[in-house]
Amino acid sequence: MTGRHRTRHRTLAGGCAALALLLAGGAARAVEPDEMLADPALEARAQHISKELRCVVCQNQNIDDSAAPLARDMRLMVRERLTAGDTDDQAKAFLVARYGNFVLLRPPFQPDTWALWLGPFAILAVAGTALVFAARTGSTDPAGDDETPDPYS
């Protein structure tokens, strides 16, 4: 093995390590220690809820991950609601009442989201039917194509 090859391997290994670090870093959370609740059970619930709520400023992050000031306000609000005795659903509903269903990273199943939830299955069904139909019409002619020889045979 030449020296050049070894350098390249080292670069590759370094790249992998950097990538691994980057991926690990992606799970970093934005919650500050002073935000956390003293009760670990309540805090765990707050974190679980926060992961399901969208930061409305940086829309592809959940509020548990987001460093945006508004996400912090929303985290504090979730904790305030839980401390006040809200269930997880009530705490989420509190924010939905203000920001709409958009704050939920997992949209609810209701009439205006039917297309969203069922669309993929509908497309799959249509495509599957078309495929079966195409295969059937093909099999009605079992002799295959007699006139033009298969160019690859």
């Binding site: 400023v57 000031p69 508004l70 306000d73 203000r98 920001y99 709409g100």
Partner: peptide
């Protein structure tokens, strides 16, 4: 400053 009213109003920015 605490953002309480703005949260109640659904302010995003």
């Amino acid at each position: 400053q605490a953002g309480r009213l703005s949260l109640d109003l659904g302010v995003t920015g």
